[in-house]
Amino acid sequence: MKLTMHVNGREVTGEAEGRTLLSAFLRDALGLTGTHIGCDTSQCGACTVHVDGRQVKSCTMFAAEAEGAQVTTIEGMENADGSLSVIQQAFQDHHGLQCGFCTPGMVMAAAALLRDIPQPTEAQIRAHLDGNICRCTGYHNIVKAILAASGQPVAMAAE
């Protein structure tokens, strides 16, 4: 079947089967490989994108369900001039990534959180990242990056 949706503000069309997952459609049909497939079992969150403004795991949604929807991926997060967005820059400044595999999902999760709660507490950030797994950083620097992106001081008790 042919699917049409709006991805990062642009109308796109691609071929899909019933079983085509949104993650596969974004990567294979549209070439948007910033959306990573980590576990493919909806646990790790590396494939997190926004569909109609809501954070979802694109490996656990059929592409056909996004027909006509507004989809935002990590490729849509940069500023119009190609520079890093506030959240992306904060991840770089605070070393919120090491290998970088989970980072697209982390950034998309952070963006969803900051839209709902512009100034979250550390506990709210950690709770919101429940479904995004990072095996490198131990999360501290990711939490610091999100605090910084929300305009808050990043001082945090050592654990």
Binding site: G45, K57, A109
Partner: peptide, 9 residues
């Protein structure tokens, strides 16, 4: 239930 992304679906 689950995590924020799961709760949206």
């Amino acid at each position: 239930i689950g995590d924020p992304a799961v709760r949206n679906r």
